[in-house]
Design a binder for these strands. Structure first.
Length: 224
DNA sequence: CGAGTTTGACCCGCGC
DNA sequence: GCGCGGGTCAAACTCG
């Protein structure tokens, strides 16, 4: 597979609101620095300038609306590409799992696990980016939702369960896992059923693995 | 027999 | 200060 396969997304978001407020400030300054025009009162001059400002503000607003439309179109295109990539992944996983497993249920688990892994990577990437921007040093936390029968989430890493707890307002217990490379690897994860949809697992990853995955391609092997 | 899981006890932070 | 709830510990247990 190509490195990014056209999936790297660069949103050149030039937010209009900031520019908008800046232009308002400029206009405001203009009014205060008005030179006195001979034969007209300062009040009349202000009115003339106010109408000019109004026209410029309408232009600015139109520009922002156009920008908004452009971004919406981009978002739709990105969503479409995401769907296509997801379909490709499913197809690949189906072809690889069919050679290793003949049971349909096992095949489905494989596919779901692989998607879970991909979503985990995606989610942690998103969280990492936002944290780095803010400059935080707290352990990186990412959350994902997976449709699964059991409490087992195949994400390519090897976990050891160290606790289970019944949580308030949720009839299903929360399971606590540590990376089996602990204490070298500080990563933990919590797995819990969603209260609204019991077939959905809420998986919370805490921290970042400081090692490679246990075995090359183990993310697929673990999916059995 | 070793590695992993279960489960009750304990710890600790937070809100009142 | 106290109680509650989430998180962790560790001994007992299970399984391959």
């Amino acid at each position: 597979m190509g490195s990014n396969n056209g999936s790297s997304i660069c949103l050149d978001l030039s937010i209009g609101t900031l520019q908008f407020s800046n232009s308002c400030m400029k206009q405001h300054n203009k009014i205060n620095k008005l030179p006195l025009i001979h034969g007209s009162t300062k009040m009349e001059e202000k009115l003339i300038y106010n109408s000019q400002i109004e026209a410029e503000m309408v232009d600015e607003m139109n520009r922002v609306v156009a920008e908004n439309r452009r971004l919406s179109t981009m978002l739709a295109a990105i969503s479409e590409r995401h769907r296509a990539l997801r379909a490709q992944v499913l197809e690949i996983m189906n072809s690889t799992s069919s050679s290793s497993s003949t049971k349909p249920a096992a095949k489905r688990r494989n596919v779901e696990g692989s998607l879970a892994y991909l979503e985990a990577v995606n989610a942690s990437y998103k969280v990492n980016c936002s944290k780095e921007e803010v400059g935080e040093t707290r352990p990186r936390i990412s959350r994902m939702y997976i449709r699964s029968d059991g409490l087992v989430v195949r994400d390519g890493y090897h976990w050891r369960k160290y606790g289970q707890k019944v949580i308030r307002d949720n009839p299903y217990p929360r399971a606590y896992f540590r990376c089996s490379f602990a204490p070298v690897c500080p990563v933990k994860k919590k797995v819990q059923r969603c209260t609204e949809d019991h077939s959905v697992l809420v998986v919370t990853y805490e921290g970042e693995h400081n090692h490679v995955q246990p075995l090359p391609g183990d993310s697929l092997n673990c999916l059995r």
